[in-house]
């Protein structure tokens, strides 16, 4: 055994000590509070998505004639197919929820402020990527929701002035949903967006490492409490516990509420009630409140404001006396999002 270690050691000159040094970023002590680990949760779920997604891709066929049948095969015939698919679906749901919670935590603790503006924007990109992966994901099943969701999505893009038509054509590979549309969604869902997300996550983590995690001080902490503790093994254990809890939660959700299949896509009939997945309820309700281009542009504006929030916030703090304006705006934003989501959820049309 020592011989083998030596053999490897000669060829990969990294000692355990060095390795520990490399990974052992000091972790701020406030991370002992569990809700601060929300950033690790989406990352963990992302890994679950990659693992289950690769498994599903072994059977999935991205063409209108075969997509629904292949998902049916996965759900009803392949061994454990229903389980893998259900875990994939539930992990997606949890991931989006975790990303949103993480972002809220960062927002309300002001962790986006100087010098962390860039990482906030990287995070925003990750949020958008996550939502896009979610959207392309449920479009792949080729059930009624997939087809009409994609159609509606493309037509929303179409209302954007100047570039709308171009975006729509890029999305659908044509003026309308056609035989080449699904493979686009598949490539976006399974290759382009995940790779982009891997790079963004790497950047996100790298920036954290460069700057160090924001440190917080809580009033109930004793004087002698140090500022940091070790990543390895202490924080790793925390993350492992989180991971296992998530896995248990996922398999419970997958067995109790397995992913079902809606009616297959029918380009001739729009279902009477058509709703996207829950995380688009906000946008969907917004689009119903305002019409056409105005709705799309206002939504774009909101996203733009969210992107630039660190700068807007610092401007407010510098120029006005409302130092805590961001908290109130945040509370208003969260209430608006919850309100619109619940509104969309409870009404039929």
């Amino acid at each position: 055994m020592p011989n083998v270690l030596n053999w490897v050691g000669e060829r990969l000159p990294v000692s355990g000590e060095q390795f520990r040094e490399l990974t052992n970023e000091p972790v701020p002590y406030h991370l002992k509070r569990w809700w601060f680990a929300l950033g690790g949760t989406p990352a963990y779920l992302f890994v679950v998505q990659i693992a289950t997604g690769i498994l599903l891709a072994f059977y999935y066929e991205a063409a209108p004639a075969t997509a629904y049948e292949s998902v049916r095969y996965i759900t009803h015939e392949a061994s454990f197919g229903w389980f893998i698919r259900s875990v994939h679906k539930w992990a997606a749901t949890l991931m989006i929820a975790a990303v949103i919670l993480h972002q809220m935590r960062v927002y309300f603790t002001g962790a986006y402020r100087k010098p962390r503006e860039i990482n906030w924007m990287v995070g925003m990109l990750l949020l958008i990527c996550t939502l896009m992966v979610g959207f392309t994901g449920y479009s792949l099943v080729y059930e009624q929701l997939s087809f009409w969701g994609a159609t509606v999505g493309a037509n929303i893009a179409d209302t954007v002035p100047v570039v709308g038509g171009f975006i729509k054509n890029m999305m659908l590979a044509g003026e309308t949903y056609n035989v080449r549309t699904l493979s686009r969604f598949f490539v976006l869902h399974a290759a382009v967006l995940p790779v982009a997300m891997v790079m963004l996550i790497a950047l996100h983590v790298m920036i954290i490492r460069l700057q160090g995690v924001t440190e917080f001080k809580f009033e109930d902490e004793g004087k002698g409490v140090p500022k940091t503790f070790n990543f390895f093994p202490d924080h790793l254990y925390t993350e492992l516990i989180m991971g296992l809890l998530l896995m248990i939660l996922l398999s419970a959700l997958a067995t109790i509420f397995p992913a079902a299949m809606g009616p297959p896509a029918d380009p001739l009939t729009t279902p009477e009630v058509i709703k996207p997945e829950w995380f688009f309820y906000v946008a969907f309700r917004w689009l119903k409140l305002f019409t056409g281009t105005a709705a799309v542009l206002s939504m774009g504006f909101i996203v733009f404001v969210m992107f630039g929030w660190p700068f807007i916030d610092s401007w407010i703090r510098r120029k006005t006396r409302f130092q805590e304006a961001s908290v109130w705006i945040g509370i208003f934003g969260v209430l608006a999002i919850i309100g619109l989501t619940v509104w969309e959820a409870v009404v039929r049309h």
Binding site: A51, L55, F58, E77, A78, S79, F80, G81, F83, I84
Partner: peptide
């Protein structure tokens, strides 16, 4: 389970 999923049903 993942392995069993990949092995033909």
């Amino acid at each position: 389970i993942a392995g069993r999923f990949l092995y033909p049903a």
